[in-house]
Design a protein around this nucleic acid. Structure first.
Lengths: 344, 344
DNA sequence: GGTTAGCACTCACACGGAACGAGTGCTAAC
DNA sequence: GTTAGCACTCGTTCCGTGTGAGTGCTAACC
């Protein structure tokens, strides 16, 4: 609002935040002068810091004892002050190795992605597996289990597979089901799961003829689609949390873990952040009160140009933003490749 | 060794352990006299406690400040002193409700079982899903994904389903695969997965004829079996841990969570305890040094009379043994029913 | 002889003041 | 505008003391 900060103020702010991110301790003028070569004395730094506090970039816990960045301070830092910290080649190689060693099937990609993000950033990670509404229907097959039940297998073009056991309605035979599968596949192939649910499926009705069978076909398609579309949330790094000094208090750990366990809540939070590309939300910028002293970095990814999901890092506001952002960016673009090359 | 304890000593020991399990505080003679109606004065109790300590049933942290049960003390308690604590009808109803609300498919039963055990006992729970080596092969089906890949679906009689995407060898067609499936199903139906792997499968070789196709059939069967047989471990209640006073120290929490994350280690521990029925291992009785101050109660369950897996409660030696044992016993017998009635 | 009251003794723990140190804000000199 | 100096604040650590729960021993009691 009051115009730009002069260069030295920016430099001081950056130094304060860098220091605080590393040490987790409120930073004072003398320490700052020692750690960073700013070319001025602690007294001058004190004056600058007082100004920065007045402008709302820094905060004071109580008189005496150093400053801590405010959300506004972090915001400025993220938007321009910080040094980008790209992944090293060694890190990229390590990530690739992890994927190759630990992932055998498509579904495991997301769990492993969560694990990797947590390991690298030392923070909690969240991975929302793609919403299947945009996935293309490939085919639906029935396999006989016994005389009362069939197994329904639903596949999408991208190779996601869902199966479900269903009871056969009284009076129907497995042959009925196979006939149904043919009709369904002929009519639905290539449609996205999202549109299928909305359409009336009336062609199928005509082709099947038998009303009762049509009803169960509908039921089956819907149940198969429901299980296929279910969004899954993968969590990583809940133990990394304990490494962070802000969680030396067991109460805080408990509170946070309980929040993370509330799957629906976490999904909602991720949905709220689903946008294009990388998004950083810092402390009080976050509408959710559980996250007021946390920051969350989200990245929305695309598979096949359609399917979309979100990967995120959740941590204390004191977070290595530069590192986390580079990582998410990398994981984001890398994800498609990892999935494409499965199975080997 | 030195014969039986006299009845009053037993009574005192039981009282000490009951008290300690409830309070988590070393228990002294006065408190004991206050909380339990033993009909004698604290001084007498002191004498008895001194004897019990001499005999190795109680321990002294340092002079002054009450006694704590030793592993030997807990052992006696579990073997005969404690009051059985059967589940109430309300608890059973709650468990049933949880299963009905939250489980839609066979694979989810185990995760939910772990969750329930953790919730009820307020401790960490472990559920080892059944080893599939004893499962009976029902059928193997192939479904076309695209011109290079097929989806392999493996089913067991009990309704466990595994799928896997496989690349087709060059030159083979989907029709070859379907032919292969017929041969495989005819020959393997009803065999257990464990025996299939060992047998030479030579009948299949003869029937398939083509050597190259036979090789890939072998490969496929093995890969399908491998994924089907993979044991899965489900963990529950890692947050319940934090409720226990022995985990008010973050270091201890970290250590424990890291141990629990080591899936192979935990599986080995459960395997070591796999026996018949309920087994309680207390503190130092445990060979694994990570568990020297923990107790683990395991119960081996059977499905279809063949498949077996293990459910367990892991907690501090100060644990509500009676409650946990009743619960495991119940879950154990209940599990078959829960699976049998799926899907609704 | 088992049981109990009394008493001296031990220790963990909580409380409170002193010393310390990191940090601030202000003023005056450069 | 920058910096040195200084008084002041306040969290943290360190000790000494007091308190309370508990023990073990001895001597008296039933």
């Amino acid at each position: 609002m009051a115009g730009e900060l002069d260069p030295r103020k920016k430099q001081v702010l950056q130094a304060v935040i860098d220091d605080y991110i590393e040490s987790a301790e409120p930073v004072g003028s003398r320490t700052l002068a020692r750690h960073h070569d700013l070319g001025v004395s602690p007294a001058t730094i004190r004056n600058e810091m007082a100004d920065l506090e007045m402008l709302g970039y820094l905060e004071h816990l109580h008189t005496s004892s150093g400053r801590v960045p405010s959300s506004k301070g972090y915001r400025l830092y993220v938007n321009g002050l910080m040094q980008p910290k790209p992944l090293t080649d060694a890190e990229k190689a390590q990530i690739d190795k992890w994927y190759r060693e630990r992932v055998r099937r498509v579904e495991e990609v997301f769990q492993e992605t969560a694990r990797i993000i947590a390991k690298v950033t030392k923070n909690v990670s969240l991975v929302l597996a793609p919403q299947m509404t945009q996935a293309k229907f490939h085919c639906l097959q029935f396999l006989p289990l016994d005389d009362r039940r069939v197994i329904t297998v639903l596949m999408t073009d991208a190779g996601f597979i869902e199966n479900k056991i269903l009871k056969m309605p009284d009076g129907s035979t497995f042959e009925d089901f196979q006939r149904m599968a043919q009709v369904i596949n002929k009519n639905l192939a290539g449609h996205t799961l999202g549109t299928i649910k909305q359409n009336s499926l009336s062609e199928i009705k005509d082709e099947i003829g038998d009303d009762m069978l049509y009803e169960s076909a509908l039921e089956i398609i819907h149940r198969a689609l429901d299980s296929g579309k279910r969004e899954r949330l993968y969590l990583g790094g809940t133990t990394e949390l304990l490494e962070q000094p802000e969680f030396h208090d067991v109460e805080k750990v408990k509170e946070t873990l309980l929040m993370l366990e509330e799957e629906e809540l976490m999904k909602d939070i991720l949905h709220a952040h689903m946008g294009d590309g990388l998004e950083v939300t810092i402390g009080q910028e976050n509408p959710d009160k559980h996250l007021q002293d946390a920051s969350i970095i989200t990245a929305t990814y695309h598979l096949d140009g359609e399917l979309l999901g979100t990967i995120a890092v959740l941590g204390p506001t004191r977070m290595e933003y530069a590192k986390a952002m580079s990582l998410l960016e990398f994981m984001n673009t890398n994800l498609t490749n990892v999935i494409k090359r499965l199975p080997w």
